[in-house]
Write a protein that binds this DNA or RNA. Structure first.
Lengths: 193, 193
DNA sequence: GTCTATAGAAGGATAGAC
DNA sequence: GTCTATCCTTCTATAGAC
């Protein structure tokens, strides 16, 4: 299995890029063929389930890519706390480099489909859950790892919304500063007990 | 000015409800007339700017409604910290009561339109900024009010995404618990200095 | 696997009567 | 202010040849 046509991957890749910028409902199948260069004639050959199937696969593809990024950021960081904060600067850089178009690859589609498309919604939910598990597994043992992972991801997602809407990296930077204060306070408290 | 036809308000009200659940791109003008009961024939009479104009006005309408809620929640709370946390339980209740359809009335549309519709995007940005100003103005003086308001709103928005996607109020509850820890730690530190 | 053509529905928007 | 009819575009999806 695996190594078959490359056009299938092109569809997924192009869909993932467009869903990130315009969301699921804002992206047409024609847009995806244009963006990806993949042949329109084979779309329903590769994805008999139509847009929903392609959407779910594209979301899982984006999710997997970011799981690799999570692994790398934690591996490169001196300590887990720095890794958590690093995601905020990476998100800010991606936003600035794209004129505030490249936000979270999941969030826009997650909200778009939350109440209308169970297949795509479940794919988004699976990605979020994977990310939470990945992050908490990499935090220091002893403290509330799940709680910190959840708080970090929620704060990041919310900050991305605000930064995209306000077209400024400041929300991301300021929320990161707040989170840093929380994490350092926690560490201080933990050290005293 | 002001008190003219009621159908104009119906459009705005119906649009605001649908944008909250399905986003801007997921809501058609036909859907809005059906939802609101307002006459299709007068849509472009009231909104010559079309869907974008209606969208921007609906977002501002939702924003104003929540500004009143912010005022009420802070007025009813014993202390500002409790008010901040109250928004998380209110959001969780709204989600559960609507089968996880009623999330933030702005966020879905904000992401939908961030890179494609400047008018609606700016309306969303204005609402977010108003909320931040309202919240920080109601926090205790002395501490980093803007920072706390921003962190609270970002964490709330992110938690709503996760709760909608995972169809569980747990992210909202758990993020609120994390935020409570942050606020109490800050207060403790402030008391010691 | 890919092509062209097209169906069939839904999208936003407009015209002109009342 | 509201009605009805309609235009044009775009959308997802399918059919059938190659």
């Amino acid at each position: 299995m695996a190594r078959t046509s490359t056009s299938r991957d092109q569809f997924i890749d192009g869909a993932a890029r467009l869903f990130r910028q315009r969301g699921y409902n804002g992206t047409g199948l024609k847009d995806i063929t244009a963006e990806s260069g993949a042949p329109w004639g084979s779309l329903y050959h590769h994805f008999p389930g139509g847009k929903s199937q392609l959407g779910a696969e594209a979301i899982r593809h984006s999710g997997d890519g970011y799981r690799r990024l999570i692994a790398k950021v934690f591996a490169d960081a001196d300590e887990p706390t720095e890794a958590v904060l690093r995601f905020f600067s990476l998100a800010a850089e991606a936003l600035e480099a794209s004129d505030f178009a490249d936000g979270c690859p999941i969030a826009t589609t997650a909200l778009d489909t939350a109440s209308t498309n169970p297949d795509v919604r479940d794919a988004c939910a699976g990605v979020f859950q994977d990310w939470l598990d990945d992050i908490s597994a990499r935090l220091e043992p002893g403290v509330d790892r799940q709680g910190i992972a959840l708080m970090g991801l929620a704060a990041l997602e919310g900050a991305i919304i605000l930064s995209r809407s306000l077209r400024s990296r400041q929300p991301l930077d300021d929320v990161a500063a707040q989170l840093r204060a929380l994490l350092e306070l926690r560490r201080t408290v933990a050290r005293l007990t």
